[in-house]
């Protein structure tokens, strides 16, 4: 099967030290892949390269056979930190519906289809009951669901999430990942996380990024491998599902 994301020998530097060196990664349609590694190891940079927000210094990236700035309309993106002001006067429903832009018609108002898709996604993500709330009244977990819904209304072929559970508690972390597992039935999912122990029970493959990239199937994750990657002793925690 042709990969939906193709990263070919990509190196990147912001101008100082090398952030990523000769990264090769193919993601097949329908995969659930975790991008893990230590902080400042280049995970988010790799994601931004795939989104076309950064240009590779060397190498090439393709999304569904096209360069990222063309192919990225097929990507639904969930950022790590909400980049907007929390007191922006906008409701949950409007925020989610903005994700239809680029898919929706250019001028004027939303179409009936835009509204139907938005309602369906809000129900699926279980935020219908808070649709008229203003963003600054939401909890961290609710906001994360809103961002996920916003990414989903464009009906993306690939879902890319940057540390989707960094700002919420553990129980909700499980909820979000259960949701991602369900969504993986119809989309490819790429999730960046520093928490390799937790995500390994969900993903089909992990890509370990620390300047370079090593790929592992989830089965191979053990203390030794993590130690190699993080280059120090790591306390592994068994997460049990409550």
């Amino acid at each position: 099967m042709t990969p939906i994301v193709r990263v070919e020998n990509v190196s990147f530097s912001y101008g100082g030290p090398t952030v990523l060196s000769d990264v090769v990664l193919d993601i097949a349609p329908g995969e659930f892949i975790g991008v893990v590694g230590p902080n400042a190891g280049g995970k988010t940079t790799l994601l931004k390269l795939m989104l076309g927000l950064l240009e590779p210094t060397m190498g090439k990236i393709q999304i569904d056979g096209r360069p990222p700035h063309e192919g990225r309309r097929k990507i639904g993106y969930v950022p790590q930190y909400p980049p907007f002001e929390r007191d922006f006067p906008i409701t949950v429903e409007q925020t989610v519906m903005l994700g239809r832009l680029g898919t929706a018609r250019l001028l004027g108002t939303y179409s009936k289809k835009d509204r139907i898709v938005t309602q369906r996604v809000m129900e699926e993500i279980e935020i219908s009951d808070i649709r008229s709330r203003r963003l600054n009244t939401l909890s961290g977990g609710q906001l994360q669901r809103v961002l996920l819904a916003r990414a989903l209304v464009s009906e993306p072929a690939i879902l890319m999430l940057d540390e989707p559970t960094a700002n919420i508690d553990e129980r909700m972390e499980t909820d979000i990942f259960d949701l991602l597992r369900a969504l993986n039935q119809r989309t490819t999912v790429v999730v960046v996380s520093h928490d390799i122990g937790f995500i390994s029970q969900y993903v089909s493959r992990v890509a370990c990024v620390n300047r370079t990239l090593m790929c592992h199937s989830t089965l191979a994750i053990d203390g030794k491998m993590i130690q190699e990657l993080y280059d120090e002793d790591v306390h592994m925690v068994e997460h049990s599902r409550v």
Partner: peptide, 14 residues
């Protein structure tokens, strides 16, 4: 609205 709200997301949506 989207450009004022979240420029990065707007760019990703084309």
């Amino acid at each position: 609205l989207i450009v004022a709200f979240d420029e990065e997301f707007a760019r990703l949506r084309g």
